[in-house]
Write a protein that binds this DNA or RNA. Structure first.
Lengths: 196, 196
DNA sequence: AATAGAAGCGGACCGCGGTCCGTTTAAGCC
DNA sequence: GGCTTAAACGGACCGCGGTCCGCTTCTATT
């Protein structure tokens, strides 16, 4: 009853074993995904490989999608870092237009590389604070920098939409369109939208 | 052994009971989806409701996604009809630009309306001959009509991507962007791309 | 009408994602 | 160190999508 207080709404610290388990799970998941491919990784396998009960997985990660989203988040974070502080033209230092083009290419390649993982992460991947909103925000920033006016949030969304993994997969895998052509298409789109 | 022949590669006609069952299944599925919502419709339910064994469902429709895609296909076909021969500005008779704008609005509303079904249809929905490729084809046609040059296939894909159900759901449901604003955003995008 | 054989059928069965709840354990307090 | 209690644990359990295979039914042929 006596709640002698964690300050205000402190996030209620994670217990030591809980933290250990979370990392073990993530590590196991990552390893299994890399070795066997996303689709053949089952929750039971991850659990036993991490030396943990199944219930634990679901308490920490909500669902299979959530776990995959967490795994995905690792590389997503790295990508964000290289956008924010990596070498130009992706990182800062190049003219806005070049950055925007590089941004698209990089996003395109990344999404293609992780396509199956992204799919497995499903909606959990999109709602993850990081993923969509960071890219959108950054695109908006570059558009503003380029002097584009209009509803930048929607414009950014429209530019990013054709870079989504599902769309790319369709183009590259089913329609056999070479990646370079898709890249060129995006460049064209950007130039039209920016009005250069 | 003696194959006294169906002509060349005739499609091997569907047996009468098979056809009857297929329709019963589709009807049951449609009804259940409408009354209970996609997510709570199970294959067992559809089967028993259609008075058919579970195996039959899967033989005819491959998977749950396939069944949902088939259900979706019904309304998709209607939509196609109204694009091809409905009243303007969606159907023929209006100037290309108006048609293109109307096309986007209509697609947007349709996709939002069927969002959950589309999601349930998953990749089966996209590979369905009809859905994606018809829209893409029509968009290409209108772009050509408008004198746009460039890689029309990619341009069409880029224009359609932001109208995908997943993207729209994100905008309308999570980000609370009013539909009218999304529509306006698409109009803006189209004008920039066409260069009007 | 009889018959052969392929096409179709259906439900028992399986594996996996997800839940539930009795048990264990870490961590603050004396 | 003992005690308390809330958090965390883990595995038995459930429902659903999907498969499999022995049985039934249609249809072409004579």
């Amino acid at each position: 009853m006596t709640r002698l207080l964690p300050l205000a709404d402190e996030p209620a610290r994670e217990r030591a074993d809980a933290a250990r388990n979370r990392e073990a799970i993530l590590a196991a998941a990552l390893r299994l995904v890399e070795t066997q491919g996303v689709d053949s990784v089952t929750m039971d396998t991850v659990a036993s490989e991490a030396g943990v009960g199944k219930g634990t997985l679901f308490r920490r990660f909500e669902s299979r999608e959530g776990l995959m989203a967490a795994v995905l988040n690792t590389s997503e974070t790295q990508w964000q870092a290289s956008v924010l502080s990596g070498p130009p033209p992706l990182g800062p230092g190049a003219p806005a237009m070049e950055r925007l083009l590089a941004f698209g290419h990089s996003r395109l390649r990344t999404n293609l590389t992780h396509a199956s993982l992204i799919e497995a992460a499903g909606k959990a991947g999109q709602r993850s604070v990081a993923a969509m909103s960071f890219a959108n925000l950054h695109a908006r920033y570059l558009l503003r920098e380029l002097g584009v006016d209009g509803d930048l949030q929607l414009l950014a969304t429209a530019l990013l939409a054709p870079l989504e993994a599902v769309v790319l997969e369709q183009q590259v895998t089913r329609d056999r369109i070479p990646v370079e052509r898709v890249e060129a298409g995006w460049d064209d789109l950007v130039r039209r939208v920016v009005g250069a």
